[in-house]
Design a protein around this nucleic acid. Structure first.
Lengths: 195, 195
DNA sequence: CAGCTGACAGATTTCAATATCTGTCATCTG
DNA sequence: CAGATGACAGATATTGAAATCTGTCAGCTG
């Protein structure tokens, strides 16, 4: 694309890569395309990212971190832990559903990227369950939740609600009735946590 | 394979198709292969199944029905509903995990088959949640479970435990610690159901 | 000399020609 | 004549040669 005089940074490469992925999809997005988009040779891209896989994983990480960031506010907030848990789960579902619904092709692209084994997804899940554990712990402290192991309960809640945040279910998220299914599972889970 | 004098029945075709799928995998299993395995012309296969898709769906249905059958005994049994619910969920997880672990290639084949949109999977899920609903209803009658809508609760329980029976998670089922994760989710769900 | 380039080897992908498959049906056979 | 066959048209899959990509690196440039 248009050559620039700006310095070539990891950040600029990541932005260009996102754009190339959006345009070409995961199968046809090449490092050469990214370099072309930046007006540099592909060798320069390899100066910042050792391999194509590392570049793709960095893009994935950025994308996942955006979701984590949206939710961390709720996890850190003050107030009724049960309400916060419900809010957090709703926000997670809403965020995923929005991403999947607004631009299905891009979402499919990221599904491919997250499927390429790497540590990014695992770290994202660790991050999210840590947020959940924080909420649950504050519920235990307040006496509204009862669990011996908030971390384990957090993982259980995360797993139990997987249908409403795991990308492999994304095509179900637009069906009529999901909202109700979501409420039912959240209800079950919140009741299971109660003392 | 070996030609036979036996009459050509839908049942024999289904058996041969299973064998061909096991041998060749979902991508390379053709109707011609099935006919060859039976020692007949492929036109004869089309006499019993209108399309290749119908044949594949019939095989899928048979496979899914085998799991449903294994579980229906637990759902129909007498005795403590909570124990039956735990047994049923454990049996479902064990059955899926065994199928995935014993013959991963065949399991992958069936994952492809179930992914080919059709009514078989939907009916299977309806069947399983009906079994769950039966257990939950008996728990409500016995006074140990509390829910206004056992069918809805059954779907919620099924969704909440998806990570331990949905094929899209099958590669997680062999990791150390799954057993514990499973127990934690079941515990959460059972507590959520309790009155 | 830090950062960029572009040629290169080996791996991967594309593309078009070729082969095989699906689904139909007129015809055959017991 | 019920049930099986195999030739056929159009759709799909395979194959192998050519094009492109990945990752490296010696050398260029500011």
């Amino acid at each position: 694309m248009a050559p620039t005089t700006e310095t070539l940074t990891a950040e600029r490469i990541l932005e260009a890569t996102e754009e190339v992925l959006r345009r070409h999809g995961p199968a046809k997005a090449t490092v050469v395309d990214v370099a072309r988009a930046l007006g540099v040779s592909h060798g320069s891209v390899y100066r910042h990212f050792r391999t194509k896989a590392a570049l793709r994983e960095a893009v994935t990480k950025r994308w996942l971190d955006r979701t984590s960031g949206e939710l961390s506010g709720i996890a850190a907030a003050e107030g009724d832990p049960e309400a916060r848990l419900r809010d957090w789960l709703s926000a997670l579902f809403a965020a995923k559903r929005r991403k999947a619904g607004d631009d299905p092709e891009l979402f499919a692209t990221y599904m491919v990227l997250t499927g390429e084994a790497g540590t990014a997804v695992g770290e994202h899940i660790t991050d999210l369950t840590a947020q959940l554990a924080r909420i649950i712990r504050s519920g235990v402290d307040a006496g509204s939740f009862d669990t011996a192991d908030p971390e384990a309960s957090a993982r259980a809640v995360f797993h139990a609600t997987g249908r409403f945040h795991d990308p492999c279910y994304s095509r179900e998220w637009e069906r009529p009735g999901v909202e109700g299914e979501f409420e039912a599972v959240v209800e079950l889970v919140v009741r299971g946590l109660h003392s």
